[in-house]
């Protein structure tokens, strides 16, 4: 199931970087179950995509993994250890970049936000590298409101990688930008994650994006969400927006993931108008 190439030679003693075990969560005192017994794991350096029908609880799952939300049941293990709070080697990029960047800080300061424990020289070095990696060195002294959407999201990305994480969580990060910027950002994220050998967990509703970017795809059911399929993506890297997306392997995978998700959406469709029973399945 997991790609062994990214693991160290000592497979038996290496813990998966992330292990989700039987995660359960509901809102409003149990009346609105969101997650039910979700379980999967992620290997070091692996790019994992999580897809599912809209509103199935993907973001809730991500927040539990990040340590921002306490699940009702089950555990989230980071390298075999359960954390109460977000562990220091985890970073997250949110969908709403204009709400997650600090408007009173410049790009440089935003990027360096999590690095307060370091001395000044080290912090500047890391911020410089992160900004260079995302292509924002020239805009370092601008403020978020002076940037385009794509640049803002790149700032958020720079902030995440400046912290030198080992696991990067992405919550529908490209949903709020236009299609062309989306492609640029996808390429950027893939390149950075490959270069940094960063384990990445991408939550997305865009199936094409999941197949294009990931090493493995986890498909969630609709609410209450559980894992219904775990699909390996054996497309070669580096991936190309044109060539990869036209390849037969890509199309097959896309078809498979799409059907899996659609299966989960089906029960929610409204019944025909001439149905005599009042109930919806």
């Amino acid at each position: 199931m997991f790609l062994t190439d990214h693991l160290s030679d000592d497979v038996t003693t290496t813990q998966p970087i992330l292990s989700v075990e039987g995660l359960t969560k509901s809102y409003t005192g149990g009346t609105a179950p969101v997650l039910h017994d979700a379980r999967f794991w992620q290997a070091e350096g692996e790019f994992l995509a999580v897809v599912g029908p809209s509103g199935c609880g993907k973001t809730t799952l991500l927040r539990c993994i990040a340590g921002l939300l306490k699940p009702d049941g089950g555990r989230v293990l980071h390298r075999g250890v359960e954390h109460m709070n977000p562990p220091p080697w985890l970073s997250i990029v949110f969908q709403d970049y204009n709400r997650s960047l600090f408007p009173w800080l410049s790009v440089r300061r935003n990027a360096g936000f999590g690095l307060h424990n370091l001395n000044k020289a080290e912090r500047e070095r890391r911020v410089g590298e992160a900004l260079a990696a995302v292509g924002l060195s020239h805009a370092a002294d601008l403020y978020p409101w002076q940037l385009s959407g794509g640049m803002q999201q790149r700032t958020a990305l720079a902030r995440s990688i400046a912290a030198s994480p080992e696991l990067l969580l992405l919550d529908e990060p490209f949903a709020s930008v236009d299609a062309q910027t989306r492609m640029d950002l996808q390429d950027l994220v893939m390149r950075i994650c490959q270069e940094m050998k960063l384990a990445t967990l991408l939550v997305t509703h865009d199936i094409d994006e999941a197949v294009f970017m990931a090493d493995r795809i986890v498909v969630l059911s609709s609410r209450p969400a559980r894992v219904v399929e775990d699909i390996a993506v054996r497309l070669s890297r580096p991936r190309d927006q044109l060539a990869t997306k036209e390849s037969p392997e890509f199309l097959q995978l896309r078809h498979r993931v799409f059907t899996a998700v659609r299966e989960e959406v089906k029960p929610r469709k409204p019944t025909a108008l001439n149905a005599t029973s009042g109930g919806v399945k």
Binding site: F94, F102, H116
Partner: peptide, 17 residues
């Protein structure tokens, strides 16, 4: 905004910070 607070939490800031 909750997202700012979430970002602070993930960045490892204490309540006081």
């Amino acid at each position: 905004d909750q997202l700012l607070l979430d970002t602070a939490r993930v960045s490892g800031l204490t309540s006081a910070q």
